[in-house]
Design a protein around this nucleic acid. Structure first.
Lengths: 337, 337
DNA sequence: GAGAAAAATGTAATGGATTACATTTTGCAC
DNA sequence: GTGCAAAATGTAATCCATTACATTTTTCTC
């Protein structure tokens, strides 16, 4: 691969002139520029960006830690990130962490070793824990989707409590009184906030909270199915099931069908995320739409602003949600609308 | 950030000794090594890997061009890639191309500018076209899933023709004679091979090929729905629909339901890929399972072998498929099994 | 303890591009 | 043509770690 020296030699100028001809064309005379450009063409010269990055101390790479790529919500988030990063001249180093902390820490180390300028974390774990840090420097990290509350860094999130409140209120409005919730992992802030919104809506409607209607899940189709089976086996089963994501809701739908129950006549089901499949389930799923791509693009923008020193206090961006009403929810059995 | 010089000064040794103490500990005396390690700890020294990469001329980055991350099959492929790359000390630079050639070329340029050592392309387009290349050098590229046939590079693929043949044969065995196919984009080698397998199976069974039963799609849920609507509006509609991916099959399922048709009693539906949702559709989808993660890990292995000069001829790896029989397919109406 | 081999350590070049500073050339006014 | 400012170009340092080669120190043998 040709270097700037070969180009300089061929064009009979110094390397500084070649560099200038390419970076600041106006600083070089027309004649020289033409000679340099010709030499560039002839040698097929491509600047070694590794050298540039090394010298500048900026890698223009961003590490992205994703719990699972094989999750349509995250896939959309990544899409938004990639678009935004590309527009701004940054590249994404992707890590599918499977929520493995060691893996996350291993990738976080790329920031310390100058391979990346910053990191985006999509779940509530600080991947820099354990790596001794310049404590005074703010971490070049942005937290999105499922956010840490123990750490001060820019975050992008949904008002999960409000969203869960809205969905619960909607189900209450349909006459449901026994509303189950299929949760995510118990320690997740996401779960905590959504459960809080759910409880608040119940309380305001004067409906007693029933612990047995909270069923644990892990965001997978199978866990939704399992949770639905458990819920319907209760002495007093729910008439509505609110799932913390669409995958679990689709799993639940299948289980209800197997039990011979009709949705929404016998049981209503609601999801969260509005993935593409939500509109194609049977029946189509009532859910909370999140601006997933915007999560990604906002997280990238914030991170780049942070890296390039344009960010003062660590901002907290709250994105809007939207309750999408489809056919999987309906009036509670025996309830007159 | 501390450099090797500061560590050397603190430990009162030369930079060469520091480097050796860290890279080849046995080449340094115990006493010195201890001093260096202490200095490393005290300064919080982390080697600047950008400098290392620059000097070595190896970035240990791989560019991955993915048509859409928001496709569960590709998501699984990426998962496999990431695992394999991480195990081998490489990182993935992800590009969600949206099949945009300019975007792909822009990322391919990273290989020429030493930012990446190689590239994996998941669709049939050579992203290096237009970039003048060292024609003698083999391109540091691996093609997987949907492969180019015009270019000589290592490839990982399914025997799509055989898979389509197997599925068509299976449907024929259920008594279907009017079997439709919802295709992918017409110019895709994937589509071409699968259609070829489909035709061959029909021909061997003595069933005339009917052009009107080939309906175009683009792998999206919506296109499957649309195609199913068109097919069922034919004067002689099909009794079975074979879709080139599960998303289109799920779209088709919804359309059939809206038309009041029962699956599989009235129409059988088959997919391709075996994404997670295939087992949770209503009814669960008969489909062709592909080892998606293995596509990813194999592609990464091949690329690294190629980069590191361990690969002779460009190999062609063919991965196995599996026909998964679920409830969406059944005997053709009026056919006795 | 001398001498040689082996081990440990040091010096300085290297990789490719950028850029501060130095020098040369050009352009213009008179 | 002179003189001076502005423009163009060149020289060499810099970024950081690695490593070939040079030098010093240790170890071992007789």
């Amino acid at each position: 691969m040709a270097t700037i020296h070969e180009v300089a030699a061929l064009a009979e100028v110094s390397v500084a002139t070649v560099s200038r001809a390419l970076q600041q064309p106006e600083r070089v005379s027309d004649k020289t520029r033409a000679r340099v450009l010709a030499a560039v063409k002839q040698t097929g010269y491509k600047p070694n960006l590794m050298a540039v990055k090394f010298r500048s101390g900026k890698s223009r790479n961003l590490v992205v830690l994703v719990p699972t790529v094989a999750n349509l919500f995250f896939a959309r988030v990544i899409t938004g990130m990639q678009q935004s990063a590309h527009d701004k001249g940054y590249s994404l180093l992707l890590c599918n962490t499977m929520a493995n902390e060691a893996m996350e820490q291993s990738y976080a180390r790329m920031v310390h070793t100058s391979q990346a300028d910053g990191l985006i974390q999509l779940r509530a774990f600080n991947p820099f824990t354990g790596l001794e840090m310049a404590a005074d420097q703010p971490l070049p990290m942005v937290n999105a989707c499922e956010v840490l509350d123990r750490i001060r860094c820019p975050t992008v999130l949904l008002d999960n409590k409000a969203a869960a409140y809205a969905m619960t209120e909607y189900l209450l409005g349909l006459g449901h009184r026994r509303i189950a919730m299929i949760k995510g992992p118990p320690r997740s802030p996401l779960t905590r906030d959504r459960v809080a919104g759910y409880k608040e809506a119940l309380a305001e409607a004067g409906v007693d909270f029933d612990e047995s209607l909270l069923s644990p899940g892990n965001f997978s189709l199978a866990s939704g199915q399992k949770a639905a089976a458990d819920l319907m086996a209760l002495p007093r089963p729910p008439t509505a099931i609110f799932c913390e994501n669409d995958e679990m809701a689709i799993g639940a739908l299948q289980q209800l069908k197997q039990l011979g129950l009709r949705v929404p006549q016998d049981v209503s089901v609601a999801g969260f995320d509005d993935i593409a499949f939500a509109a194609y389930s049977d029946p189509p799923l009532t859910t909370i739409a999140q601006p997933a791509e915007e999560f990604g693009s906002t997280a990238v923008s914030l991170l780049i602003d942070l890296i390039e020193g344009r960010l003062g206090k660590a901002p907290k961006v709250i994105l809007p949600f939207d309750l999408i009403e489809r056919a999987s929810t309906g009036p509670a059995p025996g309830h007159l609308t």
